[in-house]
């Protein structure tokens, strides 16, 4: 009875948005663990495949997006986002629901983004930060909700103070920003509840 009224087939977009979201949800619920997102569409450089899939799963008319200079690039990424998600682009990082960071070295101070208020800590920006890889670079120990004891993660984010900033971010809890690191089709989340410590060596 109901079945006839269901759209003829559950189209690929609906199902891939669901599977991308589950990967992002699992990553956020289990910080420090690497999850893979099945790529959904070819995205223009410098946007990585997982960034594009995340955008398609979460962005729409209601989510202003801020792009860093690298992401703005020649305008292709912005046009792709407008066309595929309908999300408005904003030049005001403090108004952004999501911010896409293509060059971690040029990451602005986190206070530039919305950190939420004490009453509404959810009114904050989520950062999608593209890095080189999860196999090289400095190692960090992560602790907090979602982590059974502690977990060590590695991230090659080039020359940046990202992790120092994230360690400070955890101290403003419940205000703060949430971060998803992206390398190609892999993601790793560091929500504001995660405490970070650089490993020796």
């Amino acid at each position: 009875m109901f079945a006839e009224h269901l759209s003829s087939q559950f189209d690929d977009k609906v199902l891939s948005a669901q599977s991308s979201f589950r990967a992002i949800m699992d990553a956020t619920a289990r910080p420090g663990r690497i999850h893979r997102i099945a790529p959904t569409a070819e995205a223009p450089a410098p946007m990585m495949r997982a960034t594009a899939a995340l955008a398609q799963a979460l962005f729409d008319h209601d989510t202003p997006i801020w792009l860093d200079a690298t992401m703005r690039g020649n305008g292709d990424a912005g046009r792709w986002l407008r066309f595929h998600t309908g999300a408005p682009l904003t030049s005001d990082a403090g108004q952004a629901e999501f911010a896409l960071i293509g060059d971690v070295a040029a990451l602005p101070a986190l206070e530039t983004f919305a950190l939420g208020s004490s009453e509404y800590p959810d009114r904050s920006t989520a950062l999608v930060v593209q890095i080189r890889s999860f196999n090289d670079g400095p190692a960090f120990e992560l602790k907090g909700p979602g982590i059974d004891g502690s977990i060590v993660a590695q991230a090659d984010a080039g020359l940046s103070d990202l992790f120092e900033q994230l360690a400070a971010n955890a101290r403003t809890f419940p205000r703060g920003i949430d971060v998803v690191l992206v390398a190609d089709d892999a993601i790793l989340a560091i929500p504001r509840s995660t405490r970070l410590r650089a490993m020796e060596g």
Binding site: H5, M25, F59, S124, R192, S193
Partner: peptide, 28 residues
């Protein structure tokens, strides 16, 4: 005749709820 999406909710509504779920997990 009404047409319904996978799991009933339309995609825009799901995205809105999904974003709320991510915030909820980030702020236990």
């Amino acid at each position: 005749a009404p047409v319904y999406n996978f799991a009933y909710l339309d995609e825009q509504t799901k995205r809105m709820i999904r974003r709320a779920i991510l915030k909820a997990i980030a702020i236990p």
